[in-house]
Design a protein around this nucleic acid. Structure first.
Length: 307
DNA sequence: ACGTCGACCTGTGGGC
DNA sequence: TGCCCACAGGTCGACG
């Protein structure tokens, strides 16, 4: 499941169910799901066996499980238990990480299964469209978050910006980056190297809250406008998180397979022709970046100069 | 440094 | 019932 709140719901579930458990074996049922693990599926499975999973971390839409140092290996960069490798996961459009009794039926789109040495609940990566992926990768010092960041991040995501719910997020740096870009605000919000975790739903929701049109050029935005967008994003994602995220169908679920119910609280996304909750005007739908954008034609007037 | 487009996949729902 | 189309929460690389 896609955006930050849904991924954080999954992270919390993993924190409860897999932390400090030792992997017995991993089984890759579809090679495409580990396509970004360059050494291949056998190497992926081989690296997991015998490793202990530490507390899951997240940045934007990525989450990762740090791994204990393999038996017989030298300690990692931060000492005794290493944690210099991790399983990195991105759920893509339809990925799920599910925890449950090992003898339950296999899901139709089960791609990777991880069994634990204690014989308890297993961890399954289920992904209908296979846009998501898992890989084992090195952890490297975080250049984005600095002192306030998570310390170590998976190497493949060093280019991913901090997300607006982490302490390391620098609002002033975000504002300066916006002013340097010659693009529209929604494009900027969806650019994970500028701000991470925001996808199509929460971009529309943040802009509705900020009363800004998606094509508003960023190079003339004021500090106050940027702050409104940022606060909009933070507030809407916190609110979604509090009720388990947004799910339109059973594709977006937590590790136990339960859906969140933020859908009913959406103000813009998916509300074409329904009345704006602020002014009553019918919400419009535009095509933008080969996808849909929803906004209020009155509260969010199109700028004269649009991007 | 930008934007656009297609590719990567499977499934659902609507119109005919 | 089938068939075809539009659409779906994301990211990446090629090409201007």
């Amino acid at each position: 499941m896609p955006e930050l709140p849904e991924v954080e719901v999954v992270r919390r579930g993993l924190e409860r169910w897999t932390t400090d458990r030792t992997i017995a074996s991993a089984e890759v049922l579809h090679p495409r799901s580990v396509r970004r693990h360059a050494p291949g599926p056998a190497d992926f499975a081989g690296r997991l066996a015998g490793r202990t999973v530490r507390a899951p971390q997240r940045r934007g839409k990525y989450l990762w499980l740090p791994l204990s140092t393999p038996d017989g290996a030298a300690g990692g960069v931060d000492g005794a238990d290493g944690a210099n490798e991790a399983v990195l996961a991105h759920l893509g459009m339809s990925g799920q990480l599910l925890v449950g009794e090992p003898d339950r039926e296999r899901e139709k789109h089960l791609r990777v299964r991880i069994a634990f040495a204690d014989g308890g609940r297993d961890l399954r990566f289920v992904d209908q469209r296979t846009f998501g992926h898992l890989m084992v990768t090195d952890l490297v010092p975080d250049v984005v978050g600095g002192e306030k960041g998570p310390g170590l991040v998976p190497e493949p995501i060093v280019h991913i910006a901090a997300d607006p719910l982490e302490h390391a997020f620098d609002a002033e740096a975000f504002f300066r980056a916006l002013r340097r870009r010659r693009t529209g605000i929604k494009r900027a919000l969806l650019d994970q190297s500028l701000i991470s975790g925001v996808g199509n739903i929460y971009a529309d929701e943040a802009l509705w809250r900020a009363r800004l049109h998606w094509a508003r050029p960023t190079d003339t935005m004021t500090r106050a406008e940027a702050a409104r967008v940022l606060e909009g994003a933070q507030e809407v994602m916190e609110a979604a998180l509090a009720v388990g995220g947004t799910s339109f169908d059973s594709l977006y679920v937590d590790v136990n397979g339960d859906s969140g119910y933020f859908e009913r609280s959406l103000d813009a996304y998916g509300r074409r022709d329904e009345p704006c909750r602020r002014c009553g005007a019918p919400i419009r739908r535009d095509e933008f970046m080969n996808r849909s954008s929803y906004s209020c034609p009155v509260c969010q007037p199109r700028p004269r100069r649009a991007r």
